[in-house]
Amino acid sequence: MVEAFAVASGKGGTGKTTTTLALGMALAEDHDVTVVDADTGMANLLFHAGLDDADTTLHDLLLTDREATVDDAAYDRFGMRVVPCGTSLAAFENADPARLRDVVAELARDTDVLLLDSPAALGSKSAVLPLVLADRSVVVLEPTIPALSDALKVQEYARSYGTATAGVLFNKVRDEAGVDRVADRASEYFGGETLATVPATETARTARRAGEPLLAHAPTCPAATAYREAASRIDVRDGDEADVAARFRSAVVPETP
């Protein structure tokens, strides 16, 4: 079985990468989980996962004449398989984002859950590719009007490509009672339940500085608990590995980033 989720948000700074790794760690208690930094233009998952010094990253797999294998760029960390992306601009420019399909198709063979940490923008083919390829999306947003507007936009893009919403996660929440009040209404628009309201926490920052996912750094903090609750509400569906791989391989190839 395998199901691919795009973890998406309409803007940067929503805590998307923190969320991706937190959901990944929580889901890894029951599933084989692979996390991919699909934000190839603004990679930061490596910092969150203590992989700053990773020799081989997704960028190496996206080279037209690649020598690296998928296994070279996949690291076993925190109970998950983590595929970080490098931060070199030159590497980004040399990378062919279209090859992401092949990489993900290969990773899909060997996992239950694929989490694609997706770009926060929708301005290019490569940025929307994770939304195109995923089975469902998890939308991460802060409880503000602009963030909700942007998140709705991301959702509509995803749905245009047949990618339904698995759920919505309110992040960096200061007023939990207030957000609980609006969560049901928001869910109606998103067509996916509110997975959790995750409290704002300085711990997310200290975890990143320590190069650890939040669930490893502070497993009992309220935010970690909320992320676990979110993961428990995601009902991972059975997908056929071959079908998913075929879908990824047959997707239209974008030409340039």
Binding site: P143, T144, I145, L148, V173, R174, D175, A177, G178, V179, R181, V182, R185
Partner: peptide, 8 residues
């Protein structure tokens, strides 16, 4: 605790 009232 007015964080959500505009959003609401």
């Amino acid at each position: 605790d007015d964080e959500a009232s505009a959003l609401e």
